[in-house]
Design a protein around this nucleic acid. Structure first.
Lengths: 192, 192, 192, 192
DNA sequence: CAGTAACCGAGACGGTACGTCGAGTCTTACA
DNA sequence: TGTAAGACTCGACGTACCGTCTCGGTTACTG
C-alpha cells in the first residue's frame, strides 16, 4: 500500500505515543504534559511524535479524543424516556466518581478551553455522538407520547452535557438526588 | 498597623501583578502565562510575585477570581421571573460575544480544570454569588406564584452556569433563540 | 567622645559581622560569600553590614586583613640570618598545611586578584609588615657580614612572598626540602 | 567518526563559548562571569554551555587554561643563560603591562585560588610548560658551565612564576631594575 | 527631660543570575 | 525514507543574593 519509498510509518509507535499521552494526562494534567517525557516513555524519538502530531493540542485532540480514551456511555432504551435519561445521567455521574477518568476529562476540557482547534474537534467527536444519541432517544420519546413535540431538544443536550462537565470541572460529584432533581427539571420545568 | 517588623508589603505591587495577569490571561490564556512576563510587565521583581502567590494557580485563584476580573451580571427584578431570567441569560450570552471576556473566562476555566484549589475558589467566589442571587429571585418568584414551591432551584443554577460555560468553552455563542429555548426548557420542561 | 547625636554604632555588631565573614570565607571561599548569610549568621540587619562596609571587597579588605585573621609569623633573630630565614619559611609552610588558614589565604588572594582596592590594602597591610621585618633582619645580616651589602633585598621579599602564595594557590605544600632549596637559592644563587 | 547516534556536538559552539568567556574574563573578572551573558554573547543556548562545562570553574579550567588564553612567552637560547632568563622575565613583565592580559591572568588566578580543579589544571598546563622550558634551558646552561650542576632548578621555576604572579595580583608592574635585581638574585644569591 | 537624630533588627522591594526543564528543530547512524 | 537518539537555540521555571528602602523600636546626645 505504501507507494512512496523508504520505511513505512510505524503504527506501533503511534499507539505507544497515545498510550503514554493518556498516562501523562491522567497523572499530571494537560498543562504539565511533556513531549520529551511522552517520547521517552513511549520509547520513541521526539521527532516521531512531531511527525504525527504537530503540537501539544493536536496530540490531545487527535490522540485523546479519537483514541477512544473517553468511555462511551450508552443511553438505554427501555421504553421509558425519563427513566432512560435518569439512568444515563447516573452513569455519567459514576464516571465522575472514578478519579482517573475525571482527571482525563478535566485535562481534555482544559485543552478545549485553551485551543480552538481542540474545541472544534471536541465538539465534533464527543458532543456530536452524545447529541445524536440523545436526540434519537428523545424523538422516540415524542413518538411514544412521553415528550412534547415542540420540546427544545438541542438545548436539552447542551444543558445536560454542560452541567455534567461543570460539576466535573469544579470537582463536585453528582449524587443521586442531584440526578433526580436534574431529570425533574428537564422533564417538568419549574413553572407553575 | 503593620505589626511585624520590616518594610510593609506593597499593595501597589500586588495590584500591578493582578492587572498584568489579567492582560496576559486575556491575550495568551492560562497555560501560556509566564511569571517572568507578568513580573516584567508589572514592573516588579519575580520574587515579589512569588511572595504574594506561591504558584500560577494561586495567582489565578486569589487574584483573578477574587478580584476585578469577571464582570458581575445583575439579575433584574421586574416582577416577571421568567423575563428576568431570560434577560440575565441574554446578558451572559452578550459577555461571551466579547472575545476578550470570553478568552478570560476560558482561561479561568482551564485553571479551574487543572487545579483543585482554583476550582474550590471558583466555586466559592463565582458560583456562590450567582447561586444566591438566582435563588433569591426564584424564591420571590415562588411568592409571586410564578415558580412551583418544590422546584429544584439548586439544580437550575448548576444547569444554567453549566450550559453557559460549556458554550463558552466550545466557542459556540448563545443566540437569542438558544436563550429562549433554554428559558422554555427551565420553566416548562419537556414532559407532556 | 562621640560628638554627633544619635545612637552609637555597635562595635559588637561589627565584630559579629567580621567573625561571620571569617567563617564564611573559610568554609566557602571568596566568591560564594553571601552578605545575606553573613548578616543572618551575625544576627544583624543587612543594612548594618552595608553601613560598615560598602562592598564585598571592602568587607574582606577591612574586615579580614585588619581583623587579625592572618596569623603573624615572627621572623626570629638568632644571629644566623640564613637559619632564621629558613625557620621563618618553615613556619609559613606550616601555615599552608593548616587547611583552614590556607583556605582563608586563598580567599584573600582571590579578593586581591579581583579588586584593586583590596590589592592595595593587602599590599599595605600584609606585605608591608613582612617586608619591613625581613628587611630589618637582612640588614642586620649585612651588618653581621652574612649578607652582601649590595644584595637586592626588596626583590628577596617579593620572591619569597610570591613563591609562598603561589604554592598556596596551587595547593602544593612546601616540604622541608623545598624550603631548603629555596634558602639555598636565595643565599647562594645558581650561578657558577 | 561519531560512534553514538544523535547529532554531533558542535565544535563551533564550544569555540564560541570559549571566546565569549575570554572576553568576559578580560572585561569583568572571574567572579562576575555570567553564564547567561556568555551564552548570549556566544549565540548559544545556556544548556549547551552546561553540556560542555558543568561549572564555571570547569569552563575556566578546561577552556581558558587549555586554550588560546595565556600567551606563551618563549625562552630564547642565545648561549648566555643569564641574558636569556633576563629577556624572558622582561617579556613576562611586558605581559603584565598590557592591562587586558593582566586582567585575564588575575581572573585566572582568582579561579585558581577558589577552585582546586582549576588549580590542578593550572599547574599542569601553565607551570608544567614553563618549568620544562626553563629546566631545559638551565640544563644547557649547566653544560655550558654557566650554571652550577647542583642548582635547585625546580625552585627557581616556582620562585620566578611566583614573583611574577604576585606582582600581577598586587598590580605592581615589574620594571627593568626589578627584573635585573631578580636575575642577580637568582644567579648570584645574596650570601657573601 | 522631652526631642530628635542616628542606629538597630527585620524584611520587602526591583533586579540579575543561577542551574534545570521543556519546546520544537536539526543532524547523526542505522534499518 | 522513517526511526531512536540526542544536540541545538530559545524561553520559562523557581531560588538565591544583590544593594536599596522602609518599617517599628532603641539609644544617647542636645536644647
Amino acid at each position: 500500500m505504501a507507494a512512496s519509498p523508504g520505511r513505512t510509518r510505524s503504527e506501533a509507535a503511534r499507539r505507544a505515543i497515545l498510550e503514554a499521552t493518556r498516562l501523562e494526562l491522567t497523572e499530571r494534567g494537560y498543562d504539565k504534559l511533556s513531549i520529551d517525557r511522552i517520547a521517552s516513555a513511549a520509547g520513541v524519538g521526539k521527532q516521531t511524535v512531531y511527525r504525527w502530531y504537530p503540537s501539544k493540542s493536536a496530540l490531545v485532540a487527535e490522540g485523546v479524543l479519537h483514541g477512544h480514551l473517553l468511555p462511551v456511555v450508552v443511553l438505554p432504551d427501555t421504553g421509558d424516556v425519563r427513566a432512560d435519561v435518569a439512568r444515563w445521567l447516573g452513569s455519567l455521574a459514576g464516571l465522575g466518581a472514578n478519579s482517573e477518568t475525571a482527571a482525563l476529562i478535566r485535562a481534555t476540557l482544559a485543552a478545549t478551553a485553551e485551543d480552538a482547534v481542540v474545541a472544534a474537534s471536541y465538539d465534533e467527536q464527543v458532543t456530536a455522538v452524545t447529541r445524536s444519541a440523545l436526540l434519537a432517544r428523545l424523538e422516540s420519546g415524542v413518538a411514544a407520547g412521553q415528550v412534547r413535540p415542540d420540546a427544545p431538544v438541542a438545548v436539552v443536550v447542551e444543558s445536560l452535557i454542560g452541567v455534567v462537565l461543570f460539576r466535573l470541572v469544579t470537582r463536585r460529584e453528582m449524587g443521586p438526588e442531584f440526578v433526580d432533581d436534574l431529570v425533574e427539571l428537564v422533564f417538568g420545568g419549574i413553572g407553575t
